[in-house]
């Protein structure tokens, strides 16, 4: 006779996780659900009130933070992580990682590790996702996707996706089999039809007929990143990046010495210092205003160059720290 378990069948699946942030009436945001399965682990420290609370009548009383962790600090070949995040209207969430997401060596190039995250943002919800970079070691195959759904094109988003060349201390330099990262932002219109607002898809593999090793395709850069900014809460951050891009010195321009150098204001001095650092660290970046987004692309010779630059930019502008607190940029320190 077959053994019949007295317990209900388990609905949990390996690597699945869920975060649901809702508002408890009248106005208290609570984490209704934080669940996860090995190898994924979610840690939610106590929520903090935003530093600017009181000044802005619309700001929620508490900002929640969730750390996305994996056992062993990385993803082993064949692992699949699948996380679902839902933010109710007027809630704010910070997602963080603890150290770079390491991708471990695969025995077979065709055995892909995956990480998938779906985020649903209701009206007036805001997400800050500034993780540590993904660090795929040599001989790895990894694909990840971050899919954001904005209800009626509303909702605010500030998400970074960056990847490094591997363990540079061990001489690894893009020695991967395959790396793919997809960021998509979708919306649903009144008729219920889905429309793609943004797709940022990075594909590093052996295709492309370049007859060049991946490392030489990267033009000496050890890190590449994309920062996606959208929505009213991050409007001033977006404007800051646009203005700073406008203010970059012209490439190939020369100082003929016939213009009088005016005394720099403290802001101009900071800008000048940062531009000097960018030059020294081989950091190049661009910003584009497209379809209601501000899309920033950056690359640098060393990981720390990009990390410092991103932190300096966000800190100097200040609105993210003001609305979300210091935790928002914990991974950039």
């Amino acid at each position: 006779m077959a053994f019949v378990s007295p317990f209900g069948s388990s609905t949990s699946k390996a690597g699945h996780g869920s975060i649901v942030l809702e508002v408890l009436p009248p106005d208290k945001p609570v984490l209704r659900n934080v669940s996860y399965q090995y190898p994924l682990k979610l840690v939610a420290p106590d929520p903090l009130p935003p530093p600017s609370h009181g000044a802005d009548g619309h700001a929620p009383r508490l900002i929640h933070t969730v750390f996305l962790l994996t056992y062993g600090g990385g993803i082993v070949a064949g692992d699949t992580i699948d996380l679902d995040v839902r933010l109710d209207s007027r809630t704010r969430l910070i997602l963080l990682t603890q150290g770079s997401t390491k991708i471990f060596k695969t025995p077979d190039p065709l055995l892909l590790s995956r990480q998938h995250m779906t985020v649903h943002l209701r009206n007036d919800a805001a997400l800050v996702y500034l993780p540590d970079p993904v660090q795929p070691f040599a001989h790895t195959a990894f694909a990840q996707s971050q899919i954001y759904h904005l209800e009626k094109e509303k909702g605010s988003l500030c998400a970074c996706d960056w990847v490094t060349s591997g363990r540079s201390a061990r001489g690894e330099n893009w020695d991967i089999h395959e790396y793919k990262s997809r960021n998509e932002v979708w919306t649903t219109d009144d008729a219920g039809r889905r429309r793609l607002l943004l797709r940022d898809n990075l594909i590093l593999d052996k295709h492309g007929r370049t007859d060049m090793a991946l490392s030489s395709r990267m033009d000496g850069c050890a890190v590449f990143g994309t920062l996606i900014i959208r929505g009213p809460i991050f409007a001033s951050l977006a404007k800051f990046f646009t203005d700073e891009f406008e203010a970059l010195p012209r490439i190939g321009g020369r100082n003929w010495g016939d213009a009088v150098q005016p005394d720099l204001t403290p802001k101009e001095q900071r800008q000048h210092d940062r531009q000097q650092r960018e030059k020294a660290e081989g950091l190049i970046w661009s910003a584009a205003n497209v379809r209601g987004f501000l899309l920033v692309k950056f690359a640098s010779r060393e990981v720390e160059g990009s990390r410092n630059w991103l932190r300096d930019m966000i800190k100097e502008e200040g609105s993210v720290l003001h609305a979300f607190g210091e935790r928002a940029i914990l991974c950039l320190k």
Partner: peptide, 22 residues
Amino acid sequence: EDAGQSVPVMDLWVGRHEKLYS
């Protein structure tokens, strides 16, 4: 759906065209 950038630094070169002096 699987179309995507295979040379990430290309986006930077093209995007920074606006910043050329001439």
